[in-house]
Computed example of a mutant assay.
Amino acid sequence: MLKQLSLIIIILLSLPGCEREDHLSPDYGQEKLLPDRDDYLNEDYGTQTFAKELSGIYASEIGLIYYDDETRTIPQLYLTRGEKDIHIDSLASGAVNVYFNKFNTAFMPLQLSVKIKCLLEATVDTIYIRGSDGIVRTSNDDGPIGAPLPESDDAELIGKYARKTGMIELFIDPMLPVPVKASVKGKKG
């Protein structure tokens, strides 16, 4: 009797395992449905001259702003500001890479690194910059702080470059779990 009961329990437990794939989406695991991130940046945008004009190193000031948790649109607290060089490299497609490494201040122990591929639009006096799918990483050279460090692969950037003055303004949303955004102002060096 005990053997029969254990056999029935084993059969009942194995049946849901056999039907697991019936509950998954038919699109699950199909790599061809995923976007090709290289595709949108490897085509020719015809903005190579603007990308070359924009490329260089900018002596910049980065300010971190804490936003409300619910909408992430209302500034709550201006946290800290610090100086950091912003690098912009032109790509053959006419896009640019905007990045900085290990930004921190005395009031912010974590080091923030950002790299975002951006597309350009230009008018007579301004080059507009827009990027998404940026990479954000944080590090702490002083050692572990007891929790996984925040990171993101969804950072967004909008900005503009004044061609006449060489000034750049960027607004970066790192899309971290903490609603912090970065405001950047700099001048080409």
Rank of each mutant, 00 (worst) to 15 (best):
K3L: 09
K3F: 04
K3M: 05
Q4D: 05
L5C: 06
L7D: 03
L7F: 02
L15C: 06
P16V: 03
G17F: 10
R20Y: 15
E21I: 09
L24A: 06
D27Q: 10
K32T: 11
L33Y: 14
L33K: 12
P35K: 11
R37G: 08
D38V: 06
D38W: 10
N42L: 15
G46N: 08
T49L: 14
F50Q: 15
A51F: 04
A51W: 04
I57A: 11
Y58S: 03
Y58A: 05
I62T: 02
G63K: 10
G63T: 14
T71G: 02
T73E: 10
T73P: 01
P75G: 05
Y78G: 01
Y78V: 01
L79E: 05
T80L: 05
H87W: 00
I88G: 03
S90V: 02
L91K: 07
A92C: 04
G94H: 01
G94K: 01
V96P: 10
V96Y: 10
Y99F: 11
F100P: 09
N101G: 05
N101C: 05
K102G: 08
F103K: 07
F103C: 06
A106M: 12
M108T: 15
P109K: 13
P109D: 15
L110A: 07
Q111G: 11
S113T: 15
K117D: 11
L119G: 15
A122S: 15
R130N: 14
G131S: 13
I135Y: 13
N140W: 04
N140V: 12
G146E: 03
P148S: 07
P148W: 08
P148I: 10
L149C: 04
L149A: 05
L149S: 01
P150D: 06
E151S: 14
A155I: 01
L157Q: 07
I158P: 00
I158E: 10
K160V: 02
R163K: 15
R163P: 00
T165P: 04
M167R: 14
M167D: 14
M167N: 13
I168E: 02
L170K: 05
L170T: 03
I172A: 03
I172S: 03
M175D: 14
L176N: 06
K181C: 12
A182I: 03
A182E: 09
S183G: 09
K185G: 00
K187A: 09
K187R: 14
K188C: 02
